[in-house]
């Protein structure tokens, strides 16, 4: 209580407004960043980055996988692997990914795509799924 009185005495109303606005801005920024989907993705081949893609622009591109070209599609802020018919292409089962930390992969092609950023608690229902 004394601390509060001291703080009130030591600041003007304008100061207090500045401090309150800063605190609210920090909280708002934190909430926005935690919920923000990733907007960049990195494509890896054999665990080495080979391509960085913006997810803001729709496009279809190809990268060289171990077994031949692998198509990658970006559309509406999401990304997916296309066209490789194999049960070990985890990408075909994952489908589109858009959230920060999301991954999709074609294991035999050695291609992995990861949306940049750390996954939020709300984007992952489970810490892991046992297959």
């Amino acid at each position: 209580m004394n601390l509060w009185r001291l703080a009130v005495r030591a600041t003007t109303p304008a100061d207090r407004r500045t401090i309150l606005t800063t605190a609210l801005a920090i909280v708002a920024l934190g909430v926005v960043m935690a919920r923000m989907p990733g907007n960049r993705a990195t494509v890896y081949r054999d665990n080495r980055p080979i391509l960085a893609l913006s997810m803001d622009r729709d496009l279809t591109t190809e990268v060289a996988g171990r077994l031949g070209p692998v198509k990658i599609q970006v559309e509406g802020g999401r990304i997916r692997l296309l066209e490789y018919d194999s049960p070990r292409m985890i990408g075909t089962r994952t489908g589109w990914i858009r959230d920060a930390g999301g991954t999709t992969a074609c294991v035999p092609c050695g291609i992995l795509i990861r949306v940049e950023g750390e996954p939020g608690e709300e984007t992952r229902e489970y810490d892991a799924v046992a297959h």
Binding site: A34, Y44, D46, N47, R88, I90, G101, T103, A105, V107, G110, L112, R114, E118, P119, G120, E121, D127, A128
Partner: peptide, 19 residues
Amino acid sequence: PVRPRVTTRLLMGTLVEIS
């Protein structure tokens, strides 16, 4: 540490994830 740090690699013929 509000959430796990997750790193993924392709290893041993599968997707390996360490959180």
